[in-house]
Structures are given as C-alpha cells and as structure tokens.
C-alpha cells in the first residue's frame, strides 16, 4: 500500500459515530477531507504536507473501513459530524483542505459558526449548482464509461489506473464502500446542495480555491464562480492536473497549503 505506513491509523468514537483517522507530521493542524474515491491516491500529498504540518485525514462515515450510520444521508450531516470531530480533537487554528466531494463537505463545514477554522483550501470542490435547470454543471460520473471518466478526471489518464487485482480484500471492500457512500450522499440532487450557493457568503475563513487546469468533471470556470461566491477567496489554477490536483501534483499542492500556513494567510 502506498505511503499508508507513514501515517498512524486509529479508530475513534465521535458521539456514537465510528471514525477512522490517519495522522502524520507535526505542527499546525490540517484536516484533509478526501474525495469520493476515498484516500486512495492521496498519500503522496499527505506525506508531502506532513513535512510542514500535522495532517489529520479522516475517512468520512461510510467510507474506508467505517460503517455508515443509518440516519446520515446528506453532506450537511457529514459537515455537522466534522464539527463534532473538531471538538473531540480540540483542533484550533485549523486549516481545512477538501478535494472534490470532500471540498463540498469542507464548504458546508466552513459556512457554520466556528472559531476553530483559520483557513480553507478547496481543491476542485463540488456541491454548488450555478447553471439553470437544463444545465449539467458537474459531469454525471455514474453515466460515463470507465475510460472516458479517466480522461475527464485526470490530466494524465494513466494516473487513473488502480491495479485492483493487487489490492488486499479489505482495500477492495473499502473502494466498493466508498463508491456506494458517495452515491448515497451525492445521488440527487446530483453532487450538490441547492442551498449551499446561498450560504457561501458565510464563510469567514480566508479561502483559497485551487483548480486542475484539465479538470473535465467540473471546469475551471465553475471553479472561478465558486471562488467568486466566497468573500475574498483567491483562485489558483494548477497546471498538468485534472479533477484531483493533489493526486497529480502532490508537491505543488502541499507547497501551496504549507505556504498559506507559513504566511499566516
């Protein structure tokens, strides 16, 4: 397994919710909220960032090796859960980083009143709908052929390849569970909360929105609109990256987050 050994894994109980948590590095805390595919592919980014900060990478409830609580069915539920996790770990001066589906959770978390979050980094987040009823802002990932999806998600589609045959059973099961849970939370309204666009103005933490130049799932223009809806947010394009810039350009993304922490921005 890639790099996973570098992070320590533990299981927590957060107000009755089963929480899987990976931690690596020391310093200012960073909460990394993974995309719908789970933590697979994110370890090089986590490792690079662990050289500059204390990275806390949870599996969302229902993802990884955790069960999904019956009553949870919205990203709002996940955001409230992460308020509880921040309390449980007493996280302060926190940087929240979210990718794609995890970026949606991060935005839903940052609109809530909390003094724990100091900055927010959204990497190709979903969760908001800007277009009209006939527009498809976010590609329907469950209506694409695998090869087409790889080309939409990655600047270099070869990076989409996961050698499933070599993965242990429990990792395969986690991938299957991730796919199921992402659908559970993101099926309809598809990958967004119609309310979120009206609440982004509440984000008080300084925000950086970064976007893969080759993202074929949600375009850089969608990203610009997202950044424009958050007061004072900066927008930055990452070259040679698709929907997951932190997977295709882990060093660059870790440096951006590290610099923000270092500069106190």
């Amino acid at each position: 397994m890639e790099m996973i050994a570098a992070a320590s894994r533990r299981m927590l109980d957060v107000r009755g919710i089963e929480q899987e948590l990976f931690e690596a590095g020391d310093g200012a805390p960073v909460l990394f909220l993974h995309p719908g595919r789970g933590l697979i592919g994110s370890w090089p980014f986590i490792e690079a960032l662990a050289g500059k900060a204390r990275v806390i990478a949870p599996s969302h409830p229902g993802f990884g090796k955790t069960s999904l609580p019956r009553w949870m069915n919205t990203v709002e539920d996940l955001a409230h859960h992460y308020l509880d996790l921040m309390d449980a770990l007493d996280l302060r001066d926190l940087t929240v980083v979210g990718s794609s589906f995890g970026g949606w959770i991060a935005a839903a978390l940052a609109i809530k009143p909390t003094s724990r979050i100091t900055r927010l980094v959204l990497m190709d987040p979903v969760g908001v709908k800007f277009g009209g009823r006939d527009d498809r802002d976010i590609v329907d990932i469950w209506a694409q052929k695998r090869t087409d999806l790889a080309a939409m998600m990655f600047h270099d589609p070869a990076k989409a390849h996961i050698d499933h045959a070599s993965l242990p059973e429990e990792e395969l099961l986690a991938l299957a569970r991730n796919r199921e849970s992402e659908a559970w939370f993101g099926w309809s309204p598809y990958m967004h909360d119609p309310k979120l666009i009206h609440r982004l103005h509440r984000i008080a933490a300084p925000t950086t929105v970064i976007w893969g130049a080759s993202d074929g799932i949600v375009t850089p223009d969608y990203g610009r609109a997202y950044a424009a809806a958050i007061p004072g947010a900066r927008f930055q394009i990452i070259a040679e990256a698709g929907h997951f810039p932190h997977i295709e350009q882990p060093e660059t993304c870790a440096r951006i987050v590290g610099d923000l922490i270092g500069q106190g921005r």
Partner: peptide, 24 residues
C-alpha cells in the same frame, strides 16, 4: 446495456462489488 449502467453504485452489496473490481 451501455457499460456505465450495468452496475450502478450500491445496487449490489459492497462485498459483491469488491469481487467485480478484482475481476475488472
């Protein structure tokens, strides 16, 4: 049926879909 619609997420239990992945 067009490939993406043959096995939508969650239609089959995760344990079964894990086997599908393995035999990709």
């Amino acid at each position: 049926v067009y490939e993406p619609f043959r096995s939508p997420p969650g239609y089959m239990p995760a344990t079964d879909y894990a086997r599908v992945l393995k035999n990709a």
